[in-house]
Design a protein around this nucleic acid. Sequence first.
DNA 1: GTTTCGTAAATTTTT
DNA 2: TTTACGAAAC
Length: 799
Amino acid sequence: MRWSRENDVGRPVSTDYLPAVSHTSDADLLDSLNPAQREAVEHLHGPILVLAGAGSGKTRVLTLRIARLIEEARVPADRILAVTFTNKAAGEMKARVGRLLGRDPAGLWIGTFHSLSARLLRREAEVLGFTRNFTIYDEDDRNALIGRLLTEGGYDKKKITPRAVAGIISGAKNRMQDPDELARSNPFDMLVKAAAVVYEQLGPALKTANAMDFDDLLLHPVKLFHEHPDRLEAWRHRFDHILVDEFQDTNLAQYRLVRFLGLGHGNVMAVGDDDQSIYGWRGAQVGNMREFQQDFRGTQVVRLEMNYRSTQVVLDAANQVIAQNKGRIGKTLHTTRSGGEPITVLAAADERDEAEWIVRELQARRQDWAYESMAVLYRTNAQSRAFEEQFRRAAVPYRLIGAISFYDRREVKDLLAYLRLVVNPKDDEAFVRAIAVPKRGIGEASLNSFALIARRWNKSLLEAARQADAAQDLRPNVRNALLAFAELIDRLAQFAAIEAPAPILERLIETIEYEKVLIEEGPEGADRWENVKELVAGAAEWSEEVEEGAEGTALGRFLEEAALIAAPDKEQGDEEGVTMMTLHTAKGLEWPVVVMAGMEEGLFPLSRALESPEGIEEERRLAYVGITRSRDKLYVTWARSRRRGGQLMPGITSRFVEDLPAERVEEKRTSALFTPFGSRSSGWGGQGGYGGQGGRGGQGGRPSKSSGGDWRPPEWTKDAPSASPYQAEPIENTSQTAPRLVKGERVRHRKFGSGVIQGLSGGGKDLKVTVLFADPEFGTKNLLVAYAGLERDDDWESA
DNA sequence: GTTTCGTAAATTTTT
DNA sequence: TTTACGAAAC
């Protein structure tokens, strides 16, 4: 096969379209590699660090090397450990290795640090004082637990929020600090002090609940190896080869784990790119790449600097942006794809205008590329909304990735709480969650006094509930409800002992009449019920997968997957189409056409990141990641004003836009009617009216000279000052797309549809309009302008 | 004790 | 625009 054609078809996931390789000799494959790649692939023993630039074929190197270890070096697959950053990457890599081998690499340990650690911990749980059916707590569970500890500690949860405390504790765990060290790190900060106190109690509390949070999944194995040399010895001999992908994003615990497991034989391949380190906020430390070379003596270093993905134009942009960072290991990407389309930098009026222009542009570009070849990337998930609206409106298919995790939905979590309780009766968070839905006449007060009793009895909530009749302090109906609930769980447990996850779920849903519960909740109930059905369907599908050598019951494994797999990348929207996701999620993927949207100071880079030089450098690396996702065409867009958190904020171009090489950039702006701010904001109320002609209808692309009024765009200059953090003030008193607020103007409301302004009242923030809506169901309504989100009703243009 | 309504706060990225 | 929490009503 020809590797060079591998990515010619535009699809986000680069392996989907790989032709199945029935049999290809290794020699052929090796011939297709460049010298550096080949060096990495042929290195079979001893430590090796691969500095793999974006698009330099590192997945190819990793998969080929694994295949060679199995095929050439005759290493049994089950003695190879491969760690990736996401579940998706793991799945892809496994599939690719399978294709290279022409068979399933059975027994190969491949997965994320978290999933592999969980697997290890299930086998070693007892040594650490857990049982193998331990629960994995997600953020909500952990925060709820922390909240309870805060309340018990007499803290005011309004001043010291569980979330803030959780963040501090998580940071400490990432640095592998114990509570004492955390307390000492910042003895004068009340928040840190409180966090240290809670941290102290959190460990035992989690152990009591037989639960671990995400951080613990990494910490406990390290602790295990540290305190139990015999276990370390055993696991050191478990694997002969270790490969770690995205090594630049490992944190301290992850690195320690690699070191523990790898130092014996030293057969460790670490693959990473310091320029793509974008998880510092989560405790990742690029320094691990240096540490690795020191800890593993004689590490061979290979640099992959040949990029097979992007045009010269795109690479120039990437190189120039990243060059501003200090302390890089240093690397310059080369490509053979000279030239390329220029980078389009677009200035839009606001996020809606931005989205509208992008959608139209992508529609126009459909003659050159399929929708599946295009991606819109943004800094924050919140930005996806504007795009969704415009994609829908234009009937352009899209796939939204990652925004809301399927398993994060309330109805899904509620049901899973029951199952968790079945698997782990000590899981008090699950108990609290499950007993609340459906309502059983046990409110906060009852639950609290019951929890006290349970504690006095030294029992978990479920255990205590089984004997609730002995709890004299409780009212009879509460006692009965507790008993009934415990019985329900126990019955479910009996059923679970012999059944697969799907029937268990079905039975549960039937028992608690969940469909009825949801439908009675209101209009969203139907959607929620759909999700429930999807959950059952997913469970049924899952049950069919045969996973050999896995630990625990089927139900336990099902729950573990639900906890660890972000959102089986539950995609929303259409099957195929333009992809939308955050820049973080986009790491490792590629598309012929990439749009980086929302390139404004304060949004990207985020204002929070501007507080430290490291923060800005990390944002810049994220920009680098974004740019290098593009094969052929890159769009970079920004908006002069943008709604953020309900407020309209003025925007100036991101410094990363200014860093782009001017000679490779073409500037454009939309011809949209402009949203006024600054001095024009006083014009609200009566005379209104910006940009006489309906500019919105004009096709984007050509800069139009006077799109309205006396407004001037901020100059877009190469050397604009950007040293000081950009602090934007909200724009008061404007609506997004500025309908003329005069009597007779046609406006559109999100819910009520189109209507005509009948009159105005109030002023400033309290400005109200009276609108007669076309739909008789709504009739005349008084709306607060600042809140109603009225838009010009320009349907008449097309009608 | 529970439900409902209203007001206030809040929004980074992911395992 | 959505969610979270608190107060008042049921």
